[in-house]
Design a protein around this nucleic acid. Structure first.
Length: 696
RNA sequence: AGCGGGAUGGGAUAGCCAGGAGAUUCCGGCGGGCUCAUAACCCGCAGAUCGGUAGUUCAAAUCUACCUCCCGCUACCA
């Protein structure tokens, strides 16, 4: 079935998608990688001559949007639309040009989703089942997905209602999670019996195995799901008890909405449909692609492989639609070798990049050519500078400029001569390399083929030294420059998927009509116009002090997160023993800042001292029993000589509850009492904070 | 624990799926050239027995087994 003997370009229309951005936060370089990658791939397909649509849309539904909207006191639709509009404005700034960009809450998607679900139902793939659903009696509502937190039944880690995000990463079905707590009120959730709809994913095991065998794209998108299938697929609960979402279309689902992951991928189809309706089915027929014989390519993040290689193709099969030809799952982005973290502000934000004034094509080039699609890619301003200066400025830009400038000065354009056979062949090789790279889903290869062609150009011009020939051997000089002009044009055509704007500028400098985006590979071999104007420089170097400045900015933001490890370990026991240090001198303030996240790791609670007694053999140490609400902790503190132990019981105190356990004089200490200075002045509260309250 | 990715000259990467000339490209180092070009470009040199061990094979960076070490499991949140 889905084996593809035909290389790109095929006679069928293609559709390229990228993972839908979830409408609840700013875009950063990690998101951008996917959108740029998919954009470049769709451009590359078009350059190959394949009819291609690039579509996407915002993912509006789901509990996170509902939760955040609620927190901000706005309507979920309003909340999500705001983000949606921001995304829509941002993409073109990175030359990410969708043929259609919709959102999952629009009419097209809503109708199509309901139609597809109805069909699945009619085909007998949907059944009802009573399940236990978490319910918050205080808030009087059900708790789907992220409205509930608890313990993963598989690995025992803390997990969200819909996935074990910190542990084994499994997708969790409603009702699976243990010890559920409401994220609305923090109360333990009750379970109530509810009837929900299930999609029989388990019926599709054989189909999916076969599907994966024929699937193109990155290897992780094929390998990971194989394991899941072997372990046995579970049916998939496709409804939720909430208001925000697409209403379940069939009987018995009146109070239910569809799970966000049902309508999200359908947006790929809906968005294609919108495109089709806008341009007319003569130009692009969405039904041909999705129901007949199109080439569907999904570019996704590797965190959503399961949804795209299991649930999604099963749905498509269930309704008799066409299945994806390729799924490319991209790796993550790291910053200076460390994980990107939005909470630590260790990120390069889309907005920030643009505000720094860098051309989008530079980032496009960096993100697509630094590593393979599947590989994790590290971003640093140093590496960015190196790539831009070395490859784009030094190799490509320089070759373009020197060639065209020479041509302009001596010939006022393209010299009248034929392209040499050597150059013609070399360009044809490069074209073949690009074609092969596209078929390998290898964006890096596209860039490499183009840059190496420019490199060849530099070598070629150097080898022939036309500047020496203009007087002695004008004929050869003209021929060499003719070759260089052709090479320049070829580089522009081949690099267009990655640097569309810069390629277009060169295209115009050559005096070409139309757009380089519309040009196909063969255009690389066609002669440019006879005359053109004086060229300009296309890429500017990034200076060292600029990089230093950028690094500083980044470091300032994340300094705390990176290098506080070595300072904290040694002096932890200073409070336990209040022995001699100079009383007068205040300890200097710590220079190292810690992040809020680090602070949050400290679980500090209000406690009440139940009992206090000295520890035999120790000068200062006392054994305390401290009530911290949930439980009573035994802690050892160095306050024996400084306080009248008999007065302590009943006193409130402040206790670091997640201090690592220690044993002092054979007594286990499970927590740490906070006290000030040499006198071990006991910290307490001044209001009526309850025992067990967290200090924050 | 599980899953995915990785370990290749000083740094960063390619090749591995479809085993076959002591291995790609970029940066850096050293030496040279050129001057049309954004101190750019071109040429040459030094530098890796491809994480370890054991296998399969006429042949392994590439296949198999075991092991070691790294990275990620996050794009969400104050």
């Amino acid at each position: 079935m889905s084996t593809h003997d035909d290389d790109f370009p095929t006679d069928d229309p293609a559709v390229v998608t990228c993972g839908l951005p979830y409408a609840n936060g700013d875009l950063h370089i990690g998101h951008l990688r996917g959108y740029i990658g998919a954009d470049a791939f769709s451009r590359a397909l078009e350059t190959l001559g394949q009819q291609t649509a690039y579509v996407c849309g915002s993912d509006m539904h789901g509990t996170p949007v509902a939760v955040y909207a609620e927190q901000e006191g706005v309507d979920p639709e309003e909340f999500a639309l705001e983000w949606h509009e921001q995304y829509e404005e941002t993409f073109p700034k990175f030359n990410v040009e969708f043929d259609n960009y919709g959102h999952t809450h629009d009419e097209t998607n809503t109708e199509l989703t309901q139609e597809i679900v109805r069909t699945l139902d009619e085909e007998g793939y949907v059944y009802e089942k009573e399940i236990q659903v978490a319910y918050d009696p205080q808030a009087d509502q059900y708790l789907p997905d992220r409205y509930v937190e608890g313990t993963c039944p598989y690995c025992g880690e803390k997990a969200r209602g819909d996935e074990c995000d910190e542990g084994c990463q499994r997708h969790l079905e409603p009702g699976e999670i243990e010890d559920p707590k409401s994220t609305i009120t923090g109360n333990p959730a009750e379970y109530r019996e509810r009837t929900h709809k299930f999609f029989e994913v388990s019926e599709f095991s054989d189909f999916l195995t076969e599907f994966l065998d024929g699937l193109e794209g990155t290897s992780n998108a094929r390998n990971q799901p194989r394991q899941w299938i072997e372990d046995g697929l579970q049916d998939w609960c496709i409804t939720r008890d909430m208001d925000w979402g697409i209403d379940y279309p069939g009987e018995g689902g009146e109070d239910l909405v569809l799970y966000v992951w049902v309508d999200a991928p359908i947006e790929y189809v809906a968005s294609t449909k919108q495109y089709s309706e806008r341009v007319g089915t003569d130009e692009y027929d969405w039904e041909e692609v999705w129901k007949d014989s199109g080439d569907i390519v999904h570019v996704i993040g590797r965190d959503i492989i399961q949804h795209h290689t299991i649930f999604w193709p099963a749905m498509l099969e269930g309704v008799g639609y066409n299945k994806p030809r390729g799924i490319a799952a991209t790796g993550f982005i790291t910053i200076n070798g460390k994980g990107l973290s939005t909470s630590r502000n260790r990120a390069i934000w889309a907005k920030e990049y643009l505000e720094e004034g860098f051309h989008p094509d530079l980032l496009r080039y960096y993100l697509t050519t630094t590593g393979g699609l599947q590989q994790d890619v590290d971003f640093s301003w140093d590496a960015f500078q190196e790539k831009v200066n070395g490859e784009l400025v030094g190799t490509v830009g320089n070759f373009w400029y020197r060639s065209l400038l020479f041509a302009y000065r001596n010939y006022e354009g393209t010299p009248e001569a034929d392209v040499s056979e050597e150059v013609y062949e070399r360009i044809r090789d490069a074209i073949a390399e690009v074609r092969a790279a596209v078929n390998d889903y290898d964006l890096r290869g596209i860039g490499q083929a183009a840059v190496q062609l420019a490199q060849f150009g530099n070598e070629y011009i150097q080898r022939h030294e036309p500047w020496k020939l203009t007087d002695d051997d004008p004929e050869t000089a003209a021929q060499v420059i003719r070759d260089c002009v052709q090479l320049s044009k070829a580089v522009a055509v081949l690099l267009e998927p990655i640097t569309p704007d810069k390629s277009q500028t060169l295209w115009e400098q050559l005096g070409e009509d139309g757009t380089v985006a519309e040009a196909e590979l063969e255009a690389a071999l066609e002669a440019p116009p006879r005359n053109f104007d004086e060229p300009g420089e296309l890429f500017a170097k990034i200076e060292d002090d600029r990089v230093a400045e950028l690094n500083e900015k980044l470091e300032e933001r994340v300094a705390a997160a990176s290098d506080d490890e070595e300072t904290e370990s040694d002096d932890t026991d200073a409070d336990e023993s209040s022995d001699m240090t100079d009383v007068d001198d205040l300890e200097p303030l710590a220079e190292e800042r810690i992040s809020f996240e680090d602070f949050q790791e400290l679980d500090i609670r209000v406690g009440r001292i139940e009992s206090a007694e000295g520890i035999e053999g120790a000068d200062d140490l006392a054994r305390l029993e401290v009530d911290i609400g949930f439980e009573t902790r035994q802690v050892v503190a160095g306050i024996k000589q400084l306080h009248d132990l008999e007065e302590l019981p009943g006193e409130k105190c402040v206790l670091l509850a997640n201090m690592e356990k220690a044993e002092l004089f054979g007594v286990e200490s499970n927590g740490m009492i906070l006290a000030a200075g040499e006198e071990a002045d006991l910290l307490t509260t001044h209001g009526d904070a309850e025992v067990g309250e967290k200090i924050r």
